[in-house]
Design a protein around this nucleic acid. Structure first.
Lengths: 327, 327
DNA sequence: CTTTTTTATGGAACCCGTTCCATATGCTTT
DNA sequence: AAAGCATATGGAACGGGTTCCATAAAAAAG
């Protein structure tokens, strides 16, 4: 593979001149330019980015950590993040942490090893301390990781509120509420707290079921469905995360309970899967594209030397009315 | 940031010795080892992978190109590919090519610029010639890119056959068949050819509708649904790719046509979305995990100097019986 | 016609590791 | 005692770029 030295020799100039031309920095005479261009073409020269990176101490690569990239929420996030990073000249390394419990730390270590310039983590792992040690650009999605790591999240409190209202206004009296695991520190707990608060204020009976941490597989969802609906529980409203809400709806259909007449449902996240089922679900929609954009923006600031303390960006959720609620 | 020189100075040894210790190559005395270890700890030293990469001319990064990473088929593929690459010590760069028409070429160029060691492309782009120029490790997913680039695909012919059989055996007489765009060279055309062949042999009327290239957005699917079902066409069997099949099923439900009594459906790909709808769909399932594994394996071979000519790995599809067909 | 400024160029030093070669010591072997 | 080998170490050269400094010719200013 031809290097800059070969080009310089062939063109009869110094390496500095070739480099200056490549980077449009400093003076290069027009006819020298031409000579170099010809030499580059003849040698089929492409600059070795590795050498450049070594000098500049940057790779232009950002690691995005998610538990599972085929989960609709994360796959949309990843998709938008990649597009956003591309716009500002960065490439995205995708890291799936679900498969191995030390994968997360290994990927974080890539910051120190100069393999990536920054990290966006959407992982709800258990070792917060590891993050606190690292003095490198990191942005957290929906997760608290110490005061130096900015957090991007939605207004979950409002999300919980909107969901509660939708079910109450649709006339629900006995509600089944699936809540996310409480073992991690995340802004999302707000939605469950607020949801239950509203229910309590309205004297509506609520049954809560806490889901396990980091389980996104079909088997798990179906096991939960079986467990919850084996005893003939009597509910007329369900609030759950997208996938769980869909499984609940299917169970209702299989039990010949009419949606939304007999049972109302509100899904949380509002990814595309809540739109491809029939009836289309009423959902609290997280603005995934905005989340990705904000994450990238904050990371960009950090890379460029900005420091944040207790920074949290909160985006608004919306209720998308489907046909699983009356209102 | 401390470098290997600082460590060497602090430990009172030469850089070569530190390097040998780091790489477990050559001789290092036990007490020297200890001195270096202490120095490394005190300086909080982490090797700069960039410098190593420059010397070794490899980055340990593989680019995976997909049109859209939030499409269930690709997101599952990406997920498995990442896990598989991780196992053999590679990281994955994810490249979404849908957003910009030159993104694909830009990512391919990263091979020349030594940013990635190999490429797995699941993109059905239009510039095959660009691929043919590149003499670097590339594997194609379900796509023909010249004789030097190995192809991983499923037995689409059998897929088309199984789908046709399922519909015929379920008693269909008038079939609607959505076919993928014919503008790209891909093994997947086989399924449509075979499907239509079987239908012709059985004297069953088939209506074909060719889908546009590279369209994965909801708006498009719904526009097609509107277009196709505006005239009250009379079909009792539908064969389409997952997402389209689901949209068709929903349209049937909305039109109060019973599935599978009045209309039978077979989905192609069999990603998880065909399992979360009610009724669960009968589908031709592509073994996505195997596709990812095979792609990674072939790429690994190429990176290690193996050369392939006209290599194609064909994996088997299966029919997963759901409740949208009788048989 | 000097002096200053602009334009132009080559090459050493650097980025941070790895590897190889030269050198040296201690321990066997003959 | 001499030769041979395993053990141990330092440091120069290298990978392929970038940047800065020294130098010089050409152009502009005085």
């Amino acid at each position: 593979m031809a290097g800059i030295k070969d080009v310089a020799k062939k063109a009869g100039v110094g390496v500095g001149t070739v480099s200056r031309m490549l980077n449009d920095s400093g003076y290069v005479a027009d006819d020298t330019r031409k000579k170099i261009e010809i030499a580059m073409r003849e040698l089929n020269y492409t600059p070795n980015e590795l050498a450049r990176n070594l000098y500049h101490k940057r790779t232009g690569i950002i690691a995005v950590l998610v538990p599972n990239a085929s989960h609709p929420f994360f796959s949309e996030f990843v998709n938008y993040a990649e597009a956003e990073l591309y716009k500002i000249g960065y490439k995205m390394m995708l890291c799936n942490t679900e498969k191995a419990n030390n994968a997360e730390l290994e990927y974080l270590d890539m910051l120190n090893r100069h393999i990536v310039d920054g990290v966006i983590t959407g992982v709800h792992s258990l070792n917060v301390e590891e993050y606190k040690k690292i003095q490198k650009p990191i942005v957290a999605l929906d997760r608290y990781l110490g005061d130096r790591i900015p957090v991007v999240a939605v207004n979950h409190k409002k999300g919980g509120h909107l969901a509660a209202e939708a079910l109450i206004n649709s006339g629900c009296k006995k509600i089944l509420h699936f809540i996310g695991t409480t073992v991690v520190g995340s802004p999302y707990h707000e939605r469950h707290i607020e949801f239950e608060n509203v229910m309590r204020e309205n004297h509506i009976k609520t049954l809560s079921y806490e889901l396990e941490w980091n389980r996104f597989d079909t088997e798990y969802y179906q096991r939960v469905i079986k467990e919850v609906f084996s005893k003939d529980i009597d509910v007329d409203g369900i609030f759950a995360v997208d996938r769980m809400a869909i499984e609940c709806m299917n169970e209702m259909i299989r039990k010949h309970r009419k949606v939304p007449e007999d049972v109302k449902l509100v899904a949380y996240d509002g990814t595309f899967i809540t739109e491809i089922v029939e009836p289309k679900m009423t959902a609290i929609v997280q603005p995934i594209e905005e989340l990705a954009k904000e994450s990238v923006k904050l990371l960009f600031d950090l890379i460029n030397g900005k420091e944040y303390k207790d920074k949290q960006v909160t985006l608004e959720v919306t209720l998308r009315k489907g046909n699983t609620t009356i209102i």
